[in-house]
Design a protein around this nucleic acid. Structure first.
Lengths: 348, 348
DNA sequence: CCCATTTTGAGGTACGATCATCTTTTTTGC
DNA sequence: GCAAAAAAGATGATCGTACCTCAAAATGGG
């Protein structure tokens, strides 16, 4: 925003030099924190900077400095539609103007195999890389690997799923407890009358699922006394097992009113529910807006999807990585990823 | 994303010249559509461009060309918290790195006064401006004024509220019908049992309100037969009147189960509802996430807020304005603003 | 084949900043 | 007060692109 009567053009380093009464070289030394300037002079330059409201032209700077950001994204290899959506969003962020002077590399690893993840992390050529964003399950070995990556100077952010107590620089994703609470609130408000809720996930070993369940239960038990959330069914990543346990549960529980899926495998879940013939009487809530879930929403098979915008995720991750690389601060408020509620009528 | 084995650095104009076997000057003439190049040579250069996958470095280009985008935002002056939020988002987009080489000016006009709007539009110095984003109510006079602005070469986008059949270049905002449908679906799913819904707005003269009502009714009447949406109460921007008509309606309608506010004045609406003592039994749905509505959500006074992300709105508007100015295409998919559903548990 | 007209080439300057080198001035310590 | 060290200044190259000028080459018409 421009002040009235202010100069039209924004000030450059030359203006700073003039204003501070020093040479261009000195301004440059101060701005880039190079040694050989007295504290008094540094203050003079900084004064001029704030007086004129100078902000460095980052693009000109990166141009001159031949800055190249080399980032890698570590995503699960599973056929998960969500990871594919992330990769697409990355591609898009890259081809649109956002990702300038940035080289991206996507590495897919089998997410069930912590060993493979660690192997990949260890084998990374850190000298040809400036930053890493990763979406991996939490294990102590991964935490250690992150520590080594930080030692070699990489910027590291966790994506979607965090690694608490690790040395990662930042977490880009949503708060799983809040996501679970949102699901709980929606479920409680949507379902009619007393009844039971089926809760399904891959594995409660995963922190995300655990936290979603925590949030879900907190809201349900405090505010919706008439409905009961059943113990979590775990598929352990086995789709056949998922189909089986869902079919069994639906058959056994006659007063089921809703289904909450905290993990992946939603296509299989839906097919099991369809098979049961009771889909019409159930409110189904799932996470992540995949193409299959879009259709399910449109067909009224799923009531709501709790989603996070993959575009935001990758742009945020890129911004954070760049800022960490340049030792610039991170604007936490801007990087907070929203918990989106997607219904049939507000499908993007 | 980098191809394996591809060159690390992205190609520059020099590479194009070499690849096409022409001089730098010719490449420049082709890239910037300057005359004096044979069709055959143009083709050679374009071939080289696509072969090498050259994309012009926009920032270097703008640097060289000393490009400055001068944009104005015309926002309603009313004490509307929404317009303030927009202005803040604009400020933020400006100070964060997004809005480079862009001068922004915010003009607030009394939105109830179409005359004042037209006067402002007419008095604009179009020679010192490249683009204009405006959030104004639809009138024929405004449409004409837009036409004049387009004649003088400005890029014009409508923000939040569209001017259909005008010569604006683009509309940045949500589809009001879909927003109304979303509200209808939420209301239908939230309220219990048969009953009536109070529908309130500033004025149905405004296209947004009309369309929201349309969408709302479509969903309610088709899918939720047991609930009745009452005729729209209009406040005509008069807060005292709003308070009065809401109080009267709530007192008269004993089987009210919900309130849908399509317009502004939600603080007054809430105070009227609070006064009635029946707030606890009502589901309240409103548009736009203002600070007051945040509190109302947290206090369980409002069930859901249908919102649009003001940050997106302004970033999208800025992107579109820049693209129009440079005669570049607009990626419609990226500019589609989402209809957000905000509940107590997913408050951003 | 020559001359006028296009078309192309070569080269410079600029944008805002970074960085390196070299010189001059100022500040120190003794 | 003088030499050494530190601080500041001066200058020029560079990044990728735009835009300008002038000269050289290719083309086309008669």
């Amino acid at each position: 925003m421009r002040e009235k009567g202010a100069d039209l053009a924004r000030p450059t380093v030359h203006d700073i030099a003039k204003e501070a009464g020093v040479s261009l070289a000195t301004v440059d030394r101060v701005l880039n924190a190079r040694p050989g300037v007295r504290a008094k002079t540094i203050a003079r330059v900084n004064d001029a900077v704030s007086r004129l409201g100078y902000v460095r032209d980052t693009y000109a700077a990166n141009l001159a400095r031949q800055r190249q950001y080399r980032f890698a994204f570590l995503l699960p290899e599973s056929s998960s539609q969500f990871a594919n959506a992330l990769q697409e969003a990355l591609q898009e962020a890259y081809s649109s103007n956002v990702a300038d002077r940035t080289e991206l590399k996507v590495i897919r690893v089998p997410s069930q195999d912590p060993h493979a993840i660690v192997r990949t992390l260890k084998s990374m050529n850190t000298s040809r890389l400036d930053g890493l964003a990763m979406m991996v399950p939490e294990t102590p070995q991964v935490r250690d690997a992150v520590s080594r990556l930080k030692d070699s100077g990489l910027a590291v952010v966790t994506l979607v799923s965090d690694l608490p107590n690790s040395r990662r620089d930042f977490f880009v994703g949503v708060n799983s407890i809040a996501a679970g609470r949102t699901a709980g609130l929606l479920m409680g408000r949507f379902v009619r009358g007393p009844g039971e809720i089926l809760v399904v996930t891959d594995s409660l070993q995963s922190r995300d699922s655990l936290e979603r369940r925590l949030g879900f239960d907190a809201v349900i038990s405090r505010e919706f006394r008439s409905i009961t959330a059943l113990p979590t069914l775990e598929s352990y990543g086995d789709l056949a097992r998922l189909q089986r346990i869902v079919e069994t549960a639906v058959a056994a529980r006659r007063d089921l009113v809703g289904v909450y899926s905290m993990g992946s495998g939603n296509m299989t879940l839906m097919s099991a529910l369809r098979g049961s013939g009771r889909l019409g009487e159930l409110d189904v809530l799932v996470h992540e807006l995949t193409p299959a879930m879009r259709c399910a929403l449109q067909d009224n098979e799923v009531t709501a999807v709790i989603a996070q915008n993959v575009g935001h995720l990758v742009r945020s991750a890129l911004r954070v990585l760049r800022n960490v690389c340049d030792h610039r601060p991170i604007y936490e408020a801007q990087e907070r990823v929203r918990i989106e509620v997607v219904l049939r009528e507000n499908l993007p």
